[in-house]
């Protein structure tokens, strides 16, 4: 991460400092990485640790979340995953691969009309559940789908 930005954010009145910096042209509009990067969550070695760091533990199983992924992935380096959340007010879709060295794959924040939908391609080191966790209205929901991996995609 950008150490200068870190120190700016740590300072008191961070919002006004950022505003001034933006006005001075130091930050290009639309390039303010508001959320930072949740290092603790992405470097957690197990799913419980990752979800705890994401503030997304204890999700209730939900039939309103669909995880689309192949039953069998011959190549674990490229596993297509699509998550559809029909839960109203879906704010975050979080994707994890339970048995990966670092289980947390991605956290998608959705707003301003973005629907409860993301499609991407992930790496899987071994056969395991792909887990989708949804944050909506201050609550946490989850769903999972098992993907059998023939050749692991995380190298080793």
């Amino acid at each position: 991460m950008n150490e200068q930005r870190r120190s700016i954010l740590k300072g008191a009145g961070a919002a006004s400092v950022v505003t001034v910096a933006a006005a001075a042209g130091l930050l290009k509009p639309g390039t303010v990485w508001a959320a930072g990067w949740n290092k603790a969550a992405f470097e957690a070695k197990d799913m419980a640790g990752a979800l705890s760091s994401e503030g997304a533990s204890g999700g209730a199983d939900s039939g309103q979340i669909t995880v689309k992924a192949p039953d069998i992935a011959e190549n674990g380096a490229v596993v297509p995953v699509e998550v559809i959340s029909a839960i109203p007010g879906t704010e975050h879709i979080i994707i994890l691969a339970e048995k990966n060295g670092f289980p947390l794959i991605a956290d998608f924040g959705l707003q301003n009309g973005a629907e409860g939908y993301v499609s991407t391609r992930i790496k899987m080191g071994a056969t395991s559940n792909v887990v989708a966790v949804v944050k909506a209205g201050g609550k946490v929901y989850k769903a999972a789908k098992e993907v059998k991996v023939t050749i692991g995609g995380c190298g080793g």
């Binding site: 959320a35 991605a106 956290d107 707003q111 629907e115 499609s119 991407t120 391609r121 790496k123």
Partner: peptide
């Protein structure tokens, strides 16, 4: 801003992303 994501190294090489905006 419609999407604000954080990624780890578990997204495949040469990433693909699709999303929908109403």
């Amino acid at each position: 801003v419609v999407l604000d994501a954080q990624w780890g190294g578990g997204i495949s090489k040469n990433p693909y992303l699709a999303f929908k905006v109403k």
